[in-house]
Nucleic acid binder design. Sequence first.
DNA 1: AGCATTTTGTACCGTTCAGTACAAATCAGA
DNA 2: TCTGATTTGTACTGAACGGTACAAAATGCT
Lengths: 202, 202
Amino acid sequence: MTKKVSIPAKGRPREFDREQALGQALKVFWSKGYEGASLTDLTAAMGINRPSLYAAFGDKESLFRAAVDRYEAERLSFIQRALDQPTALAVVESMLQGVVRLQTRPGTPAGCFMVQAALVTGDGAKGVCEELRSRRSAGEVALRKRLQRAKKEGDLSSDANPADLARYVSTVIRGLAVQAASGATSAELRRVVQLTLRAWPG
Amino acid sequence: MTKKVSIPAKGRPREFDREQALGQALKVFWSKGYEGASLTDLTAAMGINRPSLYAAFGDKESLFRAAVDRYEAERLSFIQRALDQPTALAVVESMLQGVVRLQTRPGTPAGCFMVQAALVTGDGAKGVCEELRSRRSAGEVALRKRLQRAKKEGDLSSDANPADLARYVSTVIRGLAVQAASGATSAELRRVVQLTLRAWPG
DNA sequence: AGCATTTTGTACCGTTCAGTACAAATCAGA
DNA sequence: TCTGATTTGTACTGAACGGTACAAAATGCT
C-alpha cells in the first residue's frame, strides 16, 4: 500500500491532479476510441494544455496505455472477486453480472473500454489495437484456468470442456459490450445473462 | 434483375469497374474502420485516384454508406435464408453458423463490418456510427419477429420470451464478431455456437 | 535576494487529413 | 475534324492532426 501524498519536489508545483486528469482521458478514449479521441478532445476534458499533458504522460500512445492500466485497476477489480467465487457457476454468474454493471453504469461511457477503444484501427495504431487484444485474451485465459481448476475439484462436470466454456462466456461478454455500446439497458442485458447461464452444464 | 452492362454514355469512358472498386473499399473499411481508413488507403486499394473516387462515389461518408449497402447485399444474404428456416431452432442455428462462416472466411477481413467499422467514433463520424447501430438493431428486430411468429405457430414453447431470446442470440453474434476480429478460428467459434444453442428452450 | 528547477500558456512546427482546380486525355456525335 | 461531355492524373487547398520551442510564472534551496 503506497501513499500518494505528493512529495514536496522542487520546481513549480503541478496545478492539476494527475489521477483525476487520467480518469478524464480514460473516459474520452472509452467513448470515442483511440483514433477518434483527438488531443484537443483530451486536453479539454482533462482541463490542461498540451505541454502539461506531454510532460505528465508522454505522447498520445503512452497516455492511452496509462488509461488502459487505470481502467484495469479501477474498473475490472470485480473480475478477481468473481474468480474467487467457490463454484464455477458462481464464478461466471458473478463475472457476467459485473460486466453488465460496469458497462451500463451511469456516469461512465457505455460499453467496454477494452473492446471499443481500438477493436480495429488504421496502420498508425496497430500497437494499441494489439495491446487491447492481448489484454482481452488474458481475461479469457484466466477464466479458462479457473474452470480447469473447478473441473479438477469436481465442481464442473467431468465431460465439460473448460476451454470451450471459457470461450463461450468470453464471447457473451464481448457481445454484451457491443450491445451496451449500442444503447442496451442493464435490465435487457441482465436477461441475456440469465439465458446465457442456461447453457451451463449440470 | 437489372442488367449492369454499362450503357454507352458519351464522355470518356471510366477505366475502372465501379463494383470491383467498391468491393475493395469495403474491405478497407472492414479491416481498418471508418476513421482508420484514409483516402490514401482507399484509393490505393481501389486502384484509382482521388478525383475518380469523388466523381464515382461522392465524399468519404457516401462511399462508406455505399459500402454498407454492398456488405448487406453481398454478405448478409444468409440471414434471410436463416429466417426462412422452418423452426425457431433451425433459424438461430443457421444464423449463428452463417455468422461464423462470414466472419472467419479467408480472403475477407476477420470480424463483422457492421460492428468494427464504427463501434464508437469521434465527433466527426457520429453519423456513420449511428447508421451502423441502426442496421444492427434491424437484424435483432427481424429475429425477434421471426421468433414471435414461431411462438404463435407453437414452434417455440409458450413460456419463452422472443424478445429476450432474440437479444441473447444477437448478443452472441456480436460477441462472435469481436472474437473473430481478435483472431479466433472458425473451429473455436463453432464450438461457441454449440454451447450457445444449449441455452435454447425446449 | 538569487539561482536552479519545474510547470504553464501561447504560439508555433511539419505532417496528414479530406476534398478540389485544372488541364490533358478519351470518348460520341456531327 | 470539330464540338461537347466525361474521366484521368497532377498538384494543390485549408483544416485538423500530433507534437514542441520558448518565455513567463511559481516553487525550494542557499
